[in-house]
Design a protein around this nucleic acid. Structure first.
Length: 646
RNA sequence: GCCACUGUAGCUCAGGGGUAGAGCUCUCGAUUCGUAAUCGAGCGGUCGUCGGUUCAAAUCCGACCAGUGGCUCCA
C-alpha cells in the first residue's frame, strides 16, 4: 500500500464503473454506509483490487472495489473462516490450555486443528457447539490489529504452534491478529464484522490431523464443521450428507449382494455372482467400444525387479509394490505389477515397428496389485487389487493432436452412457520435469488444440502435469453433485527413452515414439463404486444383474411363469422366478427392496393370454398388462440402446 | 503407517462384572394369495482374536486383527 497522508483522498471504482472519492484509510463499512443503509446491513466483506478484505480494513490507495454480500461466494468463505474462529473461541473457553493450529474455510465448511491432551468426544462437540451459539449471541466484533513481530511473539508466547508460524513469516509481511470476545488469533483474515453474523452452523466430526500435514510431527485434533448464511442451505447440505450415506456403495454392495470383503484379504474385494455380472458387463462394454483400432493383450502379473529398475518403480514406488520371495535366491527380488505400462513397453520393444503401423494401441484388463497403507483402504474406492481399463498408445509426435481429439471424444461419450457429466482439467509442465522447453511447447500445444476442438470448457491447472508430460484429467460429477477424478490422458516422453522404444520412419531411420497413457474408468472397482452411488443402486436395465423377476400369483401359474422366464432368457435377459410360498405382496416388496428393474406378474388372466402384468421398479401401483412379445421387444430394445431406464 | 472411534446371530441393533436379547433373514408347518412385509414354531452367537485383572469377564485393562472418519483446500 502506497504511503499517503491522512488528508489525502482515494479514488475507488465500484462494480458499475462509477468512481467515488473517500478519505484515505476509509473502511468497507464506511463505504457501504455511504452508499445506503440496506447495503451497510447486508455487507459481509469487501473486495479491494481483487483481494477479499473485511469491512474494518483501511483502504489507503486507489483501487477497484466491490462490497460483498451474502450472495457472493467469497462471503461464504469469509463466514466459514469466522465460524472456525468462533469454534476456537468456544474451545478455548472450555479447554483454556488448547493449542491452536490452522483453521481455514474449505469447500464444504471449515475446520480447526487443536492441540489438546485428550481427543474430543461427541459430548465435547455438543458442548462446543452450544458455546459457539453463546458466542454468536453475544455478537462480539472481530477486531483486527496489526502488530510487529516482537508483539506477536509476546502475545502468543504460550502457543508454540503460533510461534512457529510467526517465525516463518517474511519480514515484509504484515502480521495481524483478530480478536472476537475472549479469543485472539494470529490470522490474515478477512472476517465477518461480528460473531452474530454466524447463525446457521453445525459441527460434524472430529479426526486426527498431523501438524502441517507431516506424519513426523505431532497429531492434532481436528474438528470439522459447516456454516451457511441461510437455514435452508444448511439443511440442504445436511440432507446431501445424509443422501450420500444412504447411497454408500459399501452398504448397497452388501444389501444388493454385489461384493464382500474378508479380513484375510484386506483391500481385495470378493465379487458375488451378481457383482461379477456387473463387472463383466462393464468389461464387455469397454471391449465392444475398443473392438477396432485396439490390440487387447495380456501380460504377466509377476516380474523380476530388473523391469522395475528400468521403469523407475524400484526406486520410487517400491513401498507400494507387493514383493515376492524367490525361493532360489532367498531375496524379495520380484514383484506383482502395480501398473501395466512397463509390460506394454516390453511387448512394443520386442518387435521392430514401422511408422506405417502407428498408432499402436495396447489395451489390457489385467489384475494389478498396489500395497496401499492400511489406513488408506476404503470400500471399493481404494483397494489393493483391481483392474484398469488401461491403454497405452505408441505414436509419432505428429499424430498427437488427432489421437487426443479421438480419445477425448471417446471418454466423454462413454460417461454419457451412464448419465455422468465430465469437466476437463488441463495440467501443464511442473517445475520438476524432464525434456526441453521445445518438447513441452509441442506437447502442451497438441493437447490444448485437441481440447479446444471439443468445444468444451476446461480448467487450466498450471504446473500440475506429470514430470514426463502434460495431461488431461476428466472430473466426473455424479447425480448428487459430487465429483470424482476418473479418466486421464497423459503424454509420456520419458518411458520411450527409458525403454529405448523406436519406430522406423519414412526416412528409414530410427525415431522415438511418444506414449499416451489412457484410462477411462480408472479402475473397474472404483468405477463400480461410483456407479452404485450415482444410481443409488437403481441400475439401468442393461446393467442390472437381475433384469426381470417373474412372479406367479399362485402355484397354479408356476409352470407358466417358468415358461415365460425361459422365453426371456432365450431373448438374452437375466431373469429369476420367485415362486416361493409367500404372499404376492411379500414377493413384490422383496423385488423392490432388491431393486430389480422389472417385475412380471403372471396370474390366471395373463397365463391364458400369453401376457404379463408389468410392474416397473419404483412406480408403485401403476402397472400395465402387455403381451410377452411386446415386453421382450421393449426391454431388449432398452438393453441394446443402454437406455437409462427405468 | 499415524490419531480417534467401532467390532454382540447372516443383516440392523439393544444389553453390560454373576451362565446372552429383539426384529429381519434362514428352516419347518399351515396359508395359494392380483402389486411394498400372512400366521405359528424352530435353527442360529466361545459377544473380532490373544493375553491379563478377578471367586467370576461379552462387560475392566493391554496387545493384535479388521472396519469407519481423517491425516494442509496453509496464520
Amino acid at each position: 500500500m502506497s504511503q499517503t497522508t491522512a488528508t489525502s483522498q482515494v479514488r475507488l471504482t465500484l462494480p458499475d464503473g462509477s468512481v467515488r472519492e473517500y478519505p484515505a484509510g476509509v473502511t468497507g463499512r464506511e463505504i457501504a454506509e455511504s452508499i445506503g443503509p440496506g447495503l451497510a446491513k447486508a455487507a459481509v466483506a469487501i473486495r479491494v483490487d481483487g483481494t477479499v478484505r473485511d469491512l474494518m480494513f483501511p483502504i489507503r490507495g486507489d483501487a477497484p472495489i466491490a462490497i460483498l454480500t451474502e450472495r457472493d461466494r467469497e462471503s461464504l468463505d469469509v463466514l466459514r473462516h469466522s465460524a472456525a474462529h468462533i469454534m476456537a473461541t468456544a474451545v478455548r473457553e472450555i479447554f483454556p490450555t488448547a493449542g491452536i493450529g490452522f483453521g481455514p474455510s474449505i469447500d464444504e465448511g471449515f475446520y480447526y486443528d487443536f492441540e489438546v491432551p485428550r481427543p474430543f468426544t461427541p459430548e465435547d462437540l455438543e458442548q462446543i457447539e452450544a458455546r459457539m451459539a453463546e458466542v454468536t449471541r453475544k455478537d462480539y466484533p472481530f477486531v483486527r490489529e496489526e502488530v510487529d513481530r516482537d508483539a506477536a511473539n509476546r502475545r502468543f508466547a504460550d502457543d508454540p504452534l503460533k510461534l512457529e508460524r510467526i517465525s516463518e513469516l517474511g519480514d515484509d509481511e504484515v502480521i495481524s491478529t483478530y480478536t472476537d470476545g475472549t479469543f485472539t488469533d494470529l490470522c490474515r483474515g478477512p472476517h465477518v464484522p461480528s460473531t452474530g453474523r454466524l447463525k446457521h452452523f453445525k459441527l460434524l466430526n472430529t479426526a486426527g490431523a498431523y501438524w502441517r500435514g507431516d506424519s513426523r510431527r505431532q497429531m492434532l485434533q481436528r474438528i470439522y464443521g459447516t456454516a451457511f448464511f441461510k437455514k435452508d442451505e444448511l439443511e440442504a447440505h445436511l440432507h446431501r450428507l445424509e443422501e450420500a450415506r444412504r447411497r454408500d456403495h459399501r452398504r448397497l454392495g452388501r444389501e444388493l449382494d454385489l461384493f464382500m470383503f474378508h479380513p484375510f484379504a484386506p483391500g481385495a474385494p470378493f465379487w458375488t455372482d451378481r457383482g461379477t455380472t456387473l463387472y463383466n458387463l462393464l468389461n464387455a462394454f469397454m471391449r465392444d467400444l475398443q473392438r477396432s483400432g485396439y490390440q487387447e493383450i495380456k501380460t504377466p502379473l509377476l516380474y523380476n525387479k530388473g523391469l522395475w529398475e528400468i521403469s523407475g518403480h524400484w526406486g520410487k514406488y517400491k513401498e507400494n509394490m507387493f514383493l515376492v520371495l524367490d525361493n532360489e535366491t532367498g531375496e524379495h527380488d520380484s514383484s506383482l505389477k502395480p501398473m501395466n505400462c512397463p509390460s506394454h513397453y516390453l511387448m512394443y520393444g520386442a518387435n521392430k515397428h514401422s511408422y506405417r503401423e502407428l498408432p499402436i494401441r495396447y489395451t489390457t484388463y489385467d489384475v494389478l496389485h498396489r500395497n496401499e497403507v492400511s489406513g488408506a483402504l476404503s470400500g471399493l474406492t481404494r483397494v489393493r487389487q483391481f483392474q484398469q481399463d488401461d491403454c497405452h498408445i505408441f505414436l509419432m509426435p505428429s499424430q498427437i493432436p488427432d489421437e487426443v481429439r479421438r480419445l477425448t471424444q471417446f471418454i466423454l461419450s462413454y460417461y454419457q452412457v451412464f448419465g455422468l457429466t465430465a469437466t476437463l482439467k488441463f495440467a501443464t509442465r511442473p517445475e520438476v520435469r524432464i525434456g526441453d522447453d521445445a518438447m513441452w511447447d509441442a506437447a502442451e500445444g497438441a493437447l490444448r488444440s485437441a481440447l479446444e476442438a471439443t468445444g468444451l470448457p476446461y480448467e487450466l491447472k498450471p504446473g500440475d502435469g506429470a514430470f514426463y508430460g502434460p495431461k488431461i484429467d476428466f472430473d466426473v460429477a455424479d447425480s448428487i453433485g459430487r465429483t470424482w477424478q476418473l479418466g486421464t490422458i497423459q503424454l509420456d516422453y520419458n518411458a520411450p527413452e527409458r525403454f529405448d522404444l523406436k519406430y522406423v520412419g519414412e526416412d528409414n531411420h530410427d525415431h522415438r515414439p511418444v506414449v499416451i497413457h489412457r484410462a477411462v474408468n480408472g479402475s473397474f472397482e472404483r468405477f463400480i463404486a461410483i456407479l452404485i452411488e450415482h444410481f443409488a443402486g437403481l441400475f439401468p436395465v442393461w446393467l442390472a444383474p437381475e433384469q426381470v423377476r417373474v412372479l406367479p400369483i399362485s402355484d397354479a401359474q408356476a409352470a407358466a411363469a417358468h415358461a415365460v422366464a425361459d422365453r426371456m432368457r432365450a431373448a438374452g435377459l437375466r431373469v429369476a422366478v420367485d415362486d416361493s410360498h409367500e404372499t404376492l405382496n411379500y414377493r413384490i416388496r422383496a423385488g423392490e427392496v432388491e431393486k430389480v428393474p422389472y417385475m412380471a406378474v403372471v396370474g390366471q388372466r395373463e397365463a391364458e393370454s400369453d401376457s404379463l402384468a408389468l410392474r416397473v421398479r419404483g412406480s408403485g401401483k401403476k402397472q400395465e398388462v402387455l403381451t410377452v412379445d411386446a415386453f421382450l421387444e421393449r426391454v431388449t430394445g432398452e438393453v441394446r440402446t443402454r437406455a437409462l431406464v427405468p
